[in-house]
């Protein structure tokens, strides 16, 4: 009997440890789910990211095609444009986006650097309500519905902003924000940083050669991203002089 009692006691202790372990594991899972936002009823607040140092900064930009909320087939030029473009990836369903729709709908001076164009981009009609987007967009506001654009720019969710330098054909900043003034502040600061950096580079070289090359290539129809700028094999050395 004594041996049996000992085995019973050991089994009870083991079972107790197993239960404690399971409870601890369950608590860890619940805590992690909570951190991910599960079970919250309110809209999760976007985490501000510096538009100047987004993960895809420096990657090649893309032109965009889709349709407008009122049914026009539309292609919007981003590459090769002489201006910068701020792409505002929004949706009709996210509560945080409402503030951005309202800010963009006010028109006039949005507080962005001079010449910057703003294009609101929603997913295409298959994944977004045309009438809802039409109701949120203001007359005169450029809105493109294009799921392909979301894919091309690898947009993780809305709201999300991508700043493209048209002449370079590159993404120069991206991220999310909670309010329009926050976007304006980040874009303006990033533009200032780039200007300072460019001025510094010019003062070091002081020959303007890069600008001249860009202008000559553009005049010859060779735009940023042109395959001829990225040869896959070294040029052959000939004997013609």
């Amino acid at each position: 009997m004594t041996a049996l009692d000992g085995i019973q006691a050991a089994a009870t202790v083991l079972l107790g440890l197993l239960v404690v372990g399971l409870l601890k594991s369950h608590a860890d899972i619940l805590r992690q789910l909570h951190e991910l936002g599960a079970g919250r009823t309110e809209e999760p607040r976007p985490v501000p990211v510096d538009l100047a140092v987004g993960s895809a900064t420096g990657t090649r930009a893309h032109d965009m095609a889709g349709q407008t909320p009122d049914g026009e087939a539309a292609a919007v030029a981003v590459l090769g444009a002489t201006h910068d473009t701020l792409l505002a990836f929004l949706s009709s369903g996210c509560l945080t986006c409402n503030g951005f729709w309202e800010a963009l709908g006010k028109g006039g001076d949005l507080g962005l650097p001079a010449g910057m164009r703003v294009v609101a981009v929603t997913k295409g009609p298959g994944e977004e309500s045309e009438s809802s987007v039409a109701g949120l967009a203001s007359p005169g506001q450029t809105v493109l519905m294009s799921t392909q654009a979301w894919s091309d720019y690898e947009v993780p969710g809305s709201p999300y902003f991508v700043h493209v330098n048209g002449s370079a054909g590159r993404v120069v900043g991206e991220g999310t924000a909670a309010t329009w003034p926050q976007v304006v502040g980040l874009v303006t600061r990033a533009a200032g940083d780039r200007r300072t950096s460019r001025d510094g580079a010019h003062s070091r070289h002081n020959d303007g050669q890069g600008d001249r090359i860009d202008e000559e290539l553009t005049a010859a129809g060779v735009l940023p991203g042109d395959p001829s700028l990225y040869p896959t094999s070294p040029p052959e050395i000939g004997d013609n002089e």
């Binding site: 032109d63 539309a74 292609a75 090769g80």
Partner: peptide, 9 residues
Amino acid sequence: SGWEGRIRK
């Protein structure tokens, strides 16, 4: 590239 377009009724 560098152009944009629209088609509508």
